[in-house]
Structure formats: structure tokens, C-alpha cells
Simulated assay, not measured.
Amino acid sequence: MANNTSQHILNTSANLLGFCLFVITSLHIASKTETHIIDELTSSFAVLLTFSCIFSFASIRTSDLKREKRLETIADYLFVISLIGILIIILLITLNFLK
């Protein structure tokens, strides 16, 4: 294993995926119609986090160093995009509550 970031990406992506699922569930329980865009964004970023987990796991399990690095890079990019997306979601939720 050339780099140890895949293990951290896998762990953190799984935790953030739980956060996204919590937000989706909370919005459905609250039945807020004005939070429809937040619901869709959260679902989209949850999918990206799931793929980040899959690529990170595949990176850990492979024995080919070139493939490991490529999978880890993909997982890293998906994770960063999802992290920025979660920031946007948090800002939207905050603005929604300030109304």
C-alpha cells in the first residue's frame, strides 16, 4: 500500500454518508416542501460519497500499485466534491432556518 489516505477517505466518506441520510430522513419527516432542492442535492452528494467509498475500498483491496493510485485519486476527487457539496447543503439549511 503506497499511500494510507484510502483508509481515511473510506472512514470519513461512510460517516458523511450517514450525515446525508440523516438530513434526507429529517426533511421527509418534517415534510417541508421548500426544502426540495436541499433533498435533491443531499441525495446527489450521498451517491458521490457512496462511489467514493467504493473506489476507496477497491484501492485498499487491490495489489496493483498503479491501479491502487488511480482508484485512490478517483476516491479523493469524489470525496472533495462531496465535501464542498455538504458545505453548500449546510449553508442552504442554515439560510432556510433563518427565514
Rank of each mutant, 00 (worst) to 15 (best):
T35K: 08
C20Y: 04
F57M: 08
K69P: 00
T73W: 01
I81R: 14
A30E: 09
N4K: 05
S59F: 03
L10P: 04
E68W: 00
K66V: 01
I54T: 08
T25Q: 11
S52R: 04
H28T: 11
S13F: 02
F45M: 07
I81P: 01
E68H: 05
F22T: 11
L87W: 09
S63F: 03
K32N: 07
T94D: 07
S82V: 02
T42D: 00
L87V: 12
S31F: 03
C53S: 09
F22W: 12
F79H: 04
I9S: 01
I54G: 00
I9A: 02
S31T: 06
L21M: 09
T25P: 00
L16M: 15
H28I: 06
T50G: 11
V80I: 12
S59A: 07
H28A: 09
L65I: 05
S52N: 00
G85A: 01
K69S: 00
G18M: 14
H8Y: 13
S31Q: 15
F45K: 15
I86E: 06
L16A: 09
I86A: 03
D64V: 00
L49G: 05
I88E: 09
I37V: 14
G18E: 14
S43D: 09
S56Y: 03
A30D: 04
F45I: 13
L92H: 13
S59P: 11
H8C: 06
F79A: 01
I81F: 12
A75D: 01
T35V: 03
L21F: 10
I89G: 04
S63P: 06
L16C: 12
I38E: 10
D64T: 01
E72T: 05
L95T: 11
T73D: 05
G18K: 10
I60T: 06
L83H: 09
T42K: 06
L71R: 03
R67M: 07
L27P: 01
Q7M: 11
S31M: 05
K32D: 06
F45H: 13
F97Q: 15
I60N: 02
H28P: 05
A46R: 04
L41K: 15
S56M: 00
D76K: 10
T50I: 06
G18A: 12
I29C: 04
N96F: 14
F45T: 07
T35M: 12
C53V: 08
I89M: 08
R67F: 08
T62P: 10
A58N: 13
K69W: 02
L48I: 07
N96P: 03
T5F: 13
I81K: 12
S43G: 14
T35F: 08
S43K: 14
G18D: 11
T35N: 06
L17M: 14
N96H: 15
C20M: 01
I54Q: 12
I24P: 07
L49S: 06
S26W: 05
N15I: 14
L71S: 02
L83S: 13
L48A: 02
C20T: 12
F57V: 01
A46Q: 04
I93Y: 09
H36R: 13
L87Q: 15
L78Y: 10
